[in-house]
Structures are given as structure tokens and as C-alpha cells.
């Protein structure tokens, strides 16, 4: 049996190729406090400065055995650069930057200049990605994939013009909604491609607010925007939507994304296998609260093995890791993959 590098495993799996064993990379990552302490890289610093951001990103592989690295993690990167008020708590090493105030009064006011990628924490993200790329090249012979994460158009649009307004536009003023999504998706493409240029191997687009849409709104209004984004980014792409995605997920095969990172138990792997399992790569899903945070190492291993058995193509946590998730639980996902592969090998 040929053993590929974790990076090759991820890319081949996302292309739909069978590699003969379960891929060892765990693409969706957010840091936990044990890693911040070990890497001397705390929030808010690690969300705004390249060096601590890079050190903490590498912890996914170096401490969690995840065979992949993902950055950035804050959902506010784009919103802050677009002019939203974002605040950081200085006395809490684990607090994410927090959205405070929208940037625009109206969808038609949304704009950004040519220098947008120089604003907010964008430069830190690019610099950190380069550091991570160089470190992986030097220390791990380039075998570990770098996952570059950005927020999806519906989520960004909702925050920059106001969540209530954006949702209501989806019924009352579709033109306004489409206008907002169109401008934001331009930024998605610009930012996504720049991260890849700096060393990212694949894209994860997280669009949690899209969960609130009906199947019809998602299909008619959002899928065309997703298609615009995916057709403008060459590398492999995953989308992550948390929560109850049973109905909207059926349209994801038309979105141009290669993989869908789902949130169990918001949606079950059985139903996803049945509806879209042969059309899109399924990534997930170890529940972050009941298992990662509150469960034991064995609980995490059990549910991971169950996910593989039920047909997940790649494993990942179901959503962002709660920051106080114990490090042994973080490691347990990789351990489950190891157990599965060694059992298959001995068969």
C-alpha cells in the first residue's frame, strides 16, 4: 500500500480519489488554551500578530497531531477590515475578538478600496501563512497541508449591514441582499487567493449565518454567489456551515465546493450520505461541546471511529473548539484515525 503525505492525502481525497486508508489530516482547527500556554501565543495577540499566530497555528500539528494546520480563526478578520467596530479583552487570554458595531447602514453603501488587504489583521494573516509555509517546508519537508479560512459572504454581509436587516432582505428586498453578497464575494475571492499565494494549500469557507436560511433562499440567492467564489479560486475548497443543514446541504453539490464540513448532531451523517454523499466529500464531525469539551478521550475516539464507519471521508470537529477543550481530547481524533488505519492494515 502506498502511503502518501498528509498533504497528498487531503488533496487526493478532496479530488475524490481513493487512497486506500483513512486520511490523517484534520482540516478545521481552532486553538485551545493548552496550546496557547505551550506556544506562548495568547489571544488577542495571536489574532493580530504574525509570529504568535503562526506558532499557534502550527500547534494543531505539533501538539494535536492533526497533520494539518489552519489559520486564521477569528470570524472578525474581514468585518474589522471593512470598518466594523471590533473589541478585544486584554485580560482574557482565550477571548476571541468581538464584533460590536456594523460598518454600513445600507447594502448599497458597502465598499472597499484597493488597499483593503492592507487593513486590520489581513497583513498579519498573510505574514503568518508565509511563516507557517516556511516552517513546514523546513521542519516537515512540506508534507503538512495549510488550510486557509475565510468567512462566507452571507455571514460577512449580515454583520457589516446588520444581521436583522440582511435576513429580512432575503424576503423583502432580494436585490439589496444580492448587492451586499456580490460586493462581499469580491472580497472573498481577493482574500482567499492572497492567502493561497502566501502558502495556503486549500480553502475553508465558513458561512455559519447561512444556516438560518430556508432551502429555497439558500438555493436561489446564495448558491450562485458560492459558485462565483468557487469558480474564481483554483485550489481545493471546503465549506463549513454549522447547525441544522439537512435541507440546505442538498444544494451544496452545485456550489463548486469539493467538501462540506458538517455539524453533527445538527445534521446526521446518515442523511448526508444518502442525499449528497456521492457528490461531495463529507468532512466531520466530532461534536465540540458534548465530546471535545465535556467528553473523555475515549468518547472522542468512539465518536470519531463511528463517523469513519458511517462514511465520513475526512474527520474534523463539528465547529470551533471551545478554548478550554483538554489537549488529550484534541489528540484523540488523530488517535482514532491511527487506530482505524492500523486495524485495517492488519486485516
Amino acid at each position: 500500500m502506498t502511503i502518501y503525505s498528509p498533504k497528498e492525502e487531503l488533496l487526493k481525497t478532496l479530488r475524490g480519489e481513493k487512497i486506500g486508508y483513512f486520511p490523517r489530516c484534520i482540516p478545521l482547527f481552532t486553538p485551545v488554551v493548552d496550546m496557547m500556554k505551550a506556544k506562548d501565543a495568547y489571544f488577542p495577540d495571536a489574532n493580530y500578530h504574525a509570529k504568535p499566530m503562526a506558532r499557534l497555528a502550527l500547534a494543531a500539528h505539533e501538539m494535536g497531531n492533526w497533520n494539518s494546520v489552519m489559520l486564521p480563526w477569528a470570524s472578525t478578520v474581514e468585518m474589522e477590515a471593512l470598518g466594523c467596530e471590533v473589541v478585544n479583552k486584554v485580560d482574557d487570554i482565550a477571548a476571541y475578538p468581538q464584533f460590536k458595531k456594523k460598518a454600513f447602514d445600507d447594502a448599497y453603501d458597502i465598499k472597499f478600496g484597493k488597499d483593503i488587504l492592507k487593513k486590520g489583521s489581513f497583513p498579519a494573516v498573510f505574514e503568518a501563512t508565509k511563516i507557517v509555509r516556511d516552517t513546514i517546508e523546513d521542519k516537515y519537508n512540506g508534507t503538512i497541508p495549510i488550510v486557509s479560512m475565510f468567512q462566507g459572504p452571507f455571514t460577512i454581509a449580515s454583520y457589516i449591514i446588520g444581521v436583522n436587516d440582511m435576513f429580512k432582505h432575503m424576503i423583502r428586498d432580494i436585490k439589496r441582499a444580492e448587492k451586499a453578497l456580490d460586493i462581499v464575494s469580491d472580497l472573498n475571492i481577493l482574500y482567499g487567493n492572497k492567502m493561497l499565494e502566501c502558502g495556503g494549500d486549500i480553502i475553508v469557507m465558513s458561512d455559519p449565518a447561512a444556516e438560518g436560511l430556508t432551502d429555497k433562499q439558500f438555493k436561489n440567492i446564495l448558491i450562485p454567489v458560492y459558485r462565483k467564489i468557487t469558480s474564481s479560486i483554483k485550489n481545493k475548497k471546503i465549506t463549513h456551515i454549522c447547525g441544522r443543514t439537512g435541507k440546505i446541504a442538498q444544494h451544496l453539490p452545485e456550489s463548486g465546493f469539493d467538501g462540506f464540513s458538517f455539524d453533527y448532531p445538527g445534521v446526521s451523517i446518515d442523511s448526508l450520505k444518502e442525499t449528497i454523499g456521492d457528490k461531495i466529500i463529507l468532512i466531520g464531525s466530532v461534536p465540540t461541546v458534548t465530546h471535545m469539551l465535556e467528553g473523555s478521550r475515549e468518547d472522542v475516539i468512539d465518536i470519531s471511529l463511528k463517523m469513519i464507519e458511517k462514511g465520513a471521508d475526512i474527520l474534523s470537529p463539528s465547529c470551533g473548539l471551545p478554548q478550554y477543550t483538554p489537549i488529550e481530547n484534541v489528540r484523540a481524533i488523530a488517535e482514532a484515525i491511527r487506530q482505524w488505519n492500523s486495524k485495517k492494515e492488519s486485516m
Binding site: F167, G212, T214, Q217, R244
Partner: peptide, 11 residues
């Protein structure tokens, strides 16, 4: 039942 989304609920 996922027949309504957040837009409907808000209205």
C-alpha cells in the same frame, strides 16, 4: 421543521 428560516421568523 426547517420550512421557515430566520428571515420568516424575524418578519
Amino acid at each position: 421543521g426547517q420550512e421557515y428560516g430566520i428571515p420568516e421568523v424575524l418578519l
